[in-house]
Amino acid sequence: MRRTALATALVAAFGAVPALADPLPLPRVDYAITYNMQPGGQVMNMAHHAGIMRVDMTEQGQAMTGLMNLHTNKMTVLMSAPMKMAFEMNMNDPMPGMAGPAAGISPQQMMTEGDVTLTPIGTKTIAGHSCTYYDAVGTLGKDRAESKVCLTSDNVLLYSEAVDQGQTYILTATHVALGPQDPSQFRVPPGTQVMPMQMMMQGMGGLPGLNLQ
């Protein structure tokens, strides 16, 4: 099983790591963070404002932005090329591009039906910010997964590490800016054509970064 970077990022946006069935507590502050993702060294930018998560990254040479509105349970992925368009999914639907324990699980299930136990094992300083280092054990139904995470006192994720089928996945913050964010960055830009995810995938024969091989 191989996870794509976009699928990994969408899970990470909820404070989880690959293979973790349940999310960590949601952040209590606005922020903008740059992460390094391993393996591969991919850069991911993540921001939070008023219950909306934004993820920016490049997948297979194409810039993509994910917006997750925790109030409306809508997830929108914006694509910058070849034209301004986006696809939207209900967060009650299964997460696309996932396999293994996360296959068939929706973001909403991750947030409301799972259970996570955090056991403090120390402290770290990452990107100039202190965080508590935890052993995290998540369960959802019969699925169980373990990871290590580092959270600030406001539940901002600075580090996560998990092993899935022999592969270690690591997410590390390299730059952290806490404070108010521009609300316009958390809205779909005017003039963007928004389509259901199923329609776009059928019309394009699948989307980059959402297929597992």
Rank of each mutant, 00 (worst) to 15 (best):
D22S: 12
L70M: 15
A9Y: 05
A99K: 14
T119W: 00
F186W: 01
I126D: 02
L118Q: 01
K142L: 13
M111G: 03
K124P: 09
K124I: 01
Y31A: 10
S106Q: 01
A47R: 05
Y133L: 06
T72Q: 05
Q213K: 15
S80T: 14
G97M: 05
D135Y: 04
N90C: 00
G205V: 09
L78W: 03
S106Y: 07
V188T: 05
G128P: 01
G141K: 02
P39C: 02
G61D: 12
T192L: 07
Q202W: 09
D93A: 11
M200S: 12
T174Q: 15
L157W: 03
P190C: 13
H71P: 08
V149L: 11
P190V: 13
M98G: 02
T119S: 07
M57F: 00
D164F: 15
Y159F: 12
Q167V: 14
D182M: 00
N36W: 08
M204S: 05
G179T: 01
M46F: 05
D115L: 09
P190T: 14
I105K: 05
H49K: 06
D164L: 15
Y159A: 10
I170M: 11
N90G: 07
N155E: 03
A81R: 08
A86D: 13
N69G: 06
G179Y: 00
F14N: 12
K124Q: 13
T123I: 01
Y134E: 02
M44H: 00
A127M: 11
L178Y: 09
K124A: 12
Q198N: 14
L212A: 07
T4V: 12
D143A: 15
L140V: 00
L78K: 04
T168R: 14
Q181D: 08
L171Q: 02
G166K: 01
N45F: 10
V137K: 13
Y159D: 02
A81S: 10
R2A: 15
P196A: 15
Q38I: 01
Q38W: 03
K74W: 02
Q42Y: 03
M110Q: 04
P25H: 04
D93Q: 08
P183A: 04
T8D: 09
H71E: 02
N90D: 14
Q165L: 13
V77C: 04
M110S: 02
V55T: 12
G61T: 09
R144L: 09
D30M: 07
G104V: 02
L210Q: 14
A63P: 11
